[in-house]
Amino acid sequence: MIVNLSYQMTIAFSSPVRNHQFMLRLLPRLASGIQVQNQQVMITGEHDGGRFYDGFANRLICGQACEAHSSFHVSYQAQLSRSEAPLTEQGLLASVYLAPSKLTSCDDKKLSVFVELPSLYQDSSALAEALSHLVYQRMTYSTGSTNVEHRVSELLDNPVGVCQDYAHLLIALLRYYQIPARYVAGIAQGEGQSHAWVEAWIDNHWLGLDPTHDCLVNETDPYIAFAVGRDFSDCPLNSGAFTGNASHTLDIQAQLTPLRQNQ
């Protein structure tokens, strides 16, 4: 798979801010088997900036925009290709993704009532797919109904939300069945905004699941991961602190266009 990815991320401030310190997870995640060519990144006020990896092998851009500004931009363009080999990356042990995390922890009993799985599944992959389908069925998509701190414990009472909530609920269910599961933040074709989906550690590789669209994420599908973590709180695309009394809104507009298929 080769795709052309471009995006514009804009943070608009209600009044000018200064000393804006930022940390971004907006670069394709190389550990997810992505190769990058002809990359151009432009960031407001950044001089050299810092490029680091966090413990989940997500790429970080750390920097500061010190002069007063009312909007902050990141524009990005690159050609990306993705290896079609199953994703087996080394690094953190998969069992890191078994323990309940900040946003996914909830009462096991409530979770088991919520699931009501009809039957036994022949293997973990089939179970994972069934759980993903279940989340798709039980959740109602509604933009703006939840915020980024929304927890699975709240979703069990009121299963309404956006892709992040779908992902969190599926992660909680997979972990309930002792399948390590992680949150993936990135860009998917057809989504103008950023997207979130799930990877489950089964048979020594990461199986991609998109409960919002009720589908598997295959290596050949146009999904580009920026960050993974135990849940959203491990991998926000943007973190910042600034001087100034301003509210802000964040917008990301992405185009992901397949160039050609390999082979």
Binding site: Y53, D54, G55, F56, A57, G91, L92, L93, S95, V96, L98, A99, P100, G229, R230, D234
Partner: peptide, 14 residues
């Protein structure tokens, strides 16, 4: 280890 809030996987490898 992994079930403890004090474990910070974000700094694995740092």
């Amino acid at each position: 280890v992994f079930g403890s809030k004090a474990y910070l996987p974000a700094f694995h490898g740092c």
